[in-house]
């Protein structure tokens, strides 16, 4: 009897899957037939054709007429991931400091951190990005750029920072940025567009992370603090060894949402002309006219990365749980 009901359950699920799969297949089939009847070439074969549009400022450079569209998408993906990773690290660090600051014994620090949270989270993130873009465009042009001790050159073409590397004579040394005509040479470089997005998104998300930290630490029983005090542990040690590890368990689920938010907010790149995945996809769409395929790729990319971030955070959560219970 039991076996029978289990079989019936499996059958029901199988049927549901078959119907769903059939629907998706039919939709795909009809779409491509209709596109064909309108003289629109469909399919993903265009990915292997050489791109008409070059991609500059990316970890992998795409040369027009040489590299494929697939490589251009990859360049955009790397740019998106670079921005997201940098913003996640910065937002987490700032958020942790501000969140702990709100729990500080010092009234001034508490007030300042509370002020930060209220100001930052109540302004739309797009305005943050525009503000920082405006700030960096307000800097002087490369030719009149201000530099501090030859180590940093700040201009409206971006920030240049001295960085160790191999110099002209072939030996390792600190390469200092030098203004040369229109451009600045040497050192590491951060484009104004990247700067605006990185700073804007990080400061904005940090406010939310600060609240998560405050809530997580606040959720611990008062006895935990009192016990550390009774043991004579310094406050910093108590925080590091007793309070934060336990708070982390509470903080992880909402933190995952913030990280996903950062990833999705990275698409604001189009507002300032940073070449993220979305911006490059839009360009490739104009280039090829393959609207349905390009949008499918975009949706697949954002869904896949979001699911990966969720899964990774889930693993961390799970580990923490076991460690906590032990």
């Amino acid at each position: 009897m039991r076996l029978l009901s289990r079989w019936a359950g499996a059958l029901r699920q199988g049927l549901a899957f078959a119907v769903l799969g059939g629907l998706v297949f039919a939709m795909f089939h009809v779409t491509s037939a209709n596109l064909q009847s309108r003289g629109i070439h469909s399919g993903f074969a265009f990915l292997w054709e050489p791109s008409r549009t070059p991609v500059a400022d990316a970890p992998i450079v795409v040369e027009a007429g040489v590299d494929s569209y697939a490589k251009a998408f990859a360049a955009g993906a790397l740019n998106s991931l670079k921005l997201t990773a940098a913003a996640i690290v910065a937002a987490t660090l700032i958020g942790l400091v501000i969140g702990l600051g709100r729990l500080s014994g010092n009234a001034l620090a508490r007030a300042l951190c509370a002020g930060y949270v209220e100001v930052m989270r109540n302004v739309p993130v797009l305005l943050h990005v525009f503000l920082w873009y405006g700030v960096i465009l307000g800097l002087p042009a490369a030719a009149q750029a201000s530099s501090w001790g030859d180590l940093v050159v700040a201009s409206n073409r971006g920030l240049y920072l001295a960085w160790p590397g191999v110099d002209a004579s072939g030996s390792w040394s600190l390469i200092r940025p030098v203004v040369d005509g229109f451009e600045v040479k040497g050192g590491v470089y951060m484009a104004p567009e990247f700067f605006a997005l990185f700073v804007g998104i990080s400061l904005y998300t940090a406010a939310f992370i600060a609240e998560i930290v405050r809530a997580a630490v606040g959720s611990l029983p008062r006895g935990q603090w009192e016990a550390t005090a009774a043991l004579g542990l310094p406050r910093a040690t108590a925080l590091r060894r007793v309070v934060l590890p336990q708070a982390l368990r509470v903080a992880l689920p909402p933190l995952t949402s913030e990280y996903l938010g950062i990833f999705k907010n990275s698409t604001l790149a189009v507002a300032v002309g940073y070449q993220d995945f979305m911006a490059i996809s839009t360009t490739m769409l104009t280039d090829t006219g393959q609207a349905v395929e390009v949008m499918a790729i975009v949706m697949a990319f954002y869904a896949a990365v979001s699911l990966l971030v969720s899964a990774a955070m889930h693993v961390v959560e799970h580990r923490n749980m076991r460690w906590g219970l032990r």
Partner: peptide, 26 residues
């Protein structure tokens, strides 16, 4: 502008062999 602007700039500056930094906008 992103797209045709980028490809035409690449063609032109490639032809006259001038290095440039592209700043594309949508």
């Amino acid at each position: 502008l992103a797209g045709p602007g980028e490809s035409n700039a690449a063609e032109y500056f490639g032809k006259i062999k001038v290095r440039y930094k592209a700043v594309p906008f949508s």
